[in-house]
Design a protein around this nucleic acid. Sequence first.
DNA 1: TCAATCACTTACAAAATGGAAGTTTGACTT
DNA 2: AAGTCAAACTTCCATTTTGTAAGTGATTGA
Lengths: 125, 125
Amino acid sequence: MTKPKHEFRSRCSIARSLEILGDKWTLLVVRDLMWHGKHTFQELQNSEEHLPPNLLSQRLKRLMDWDLVERQAYQDRPVRYRYTLTDRGRELEPTLLQIMGWGHAHLGGGLYDPAQGKTVAKAST
Amino acid sequence: MTKPKHEFRSRCSIARSLEILGDKWTLLVVRDLMWHGKHTFQELQNSEEHLPPNLLSQRLKRLMDWDLVERQAYQDRPVRYRYTLTDRGRELEPTLLQIMGWGHAHLGGGLYDPAQGKTVAKAST
DNA sequence: TCAATCACTTACAAAATGGAAGTTTGACTT
DNA sequence: AAGTCAAACTTCCATTTTGTAAGTGATTGA
């Protein structure tokens, strides 16, 4: 397992997951990498929610530390990176779908269908 | 929809859900209410993760504001409350199961089966 | 040489968190 | 009657995290 140094505060899988994913931004980065074709720092920063660059930087570092995201330079001089999900990161898709479904049903948010690659229900409020 | 006063920062269902659930504690409270028979303030506070009472108080308020949790007095003089999930709160079960599954697979956390009401795989690390 | 782009980092005020102690209401014991 | 106990919170405050804005370094194109 990655990061054997880290001490989890709990043996519960949910608590452990939340130590990595439990904030308002991290899963939005995963969402953009997973579905919206955003792969550079700039693209991720220009998400609908506009997360500030210092937080994006920190979140990407954490996601890379935990092996949910990896990056590769797509050019040298100056070096520019492309961020992508690892298998471990991609396995969050069902979780993302569940959260989206709940938010759509109860908070009136939009609904995106990854199979069609588009929004199938707009936000209602 | 509840709380029409609130302005969501985004039309995305995931972003909206995270405005309510996106922290390290809220879903643990939901977990304890959903599966572990914890319904009083004290019981919730004595969870495996021991969230401090000021945070528990604030989280319960938010969950009640959003109609995920309700409370009823189970005695007067002095008044004592029992917290329970609403339908809307209970509908987070699939989400919780997904997060748990991911945390078990990738972070070595335990696995709880609500059908059996017990842990079916212990934390591995 | 100057402006522009990308990928960040730095600085700092404001807000959230976490730990400990205190408050309120009433019952129960001595 | 006074003291103890318990549940359910609230208050206090130091530390950490967040959010806003501005700055940096590398390189290309005008």
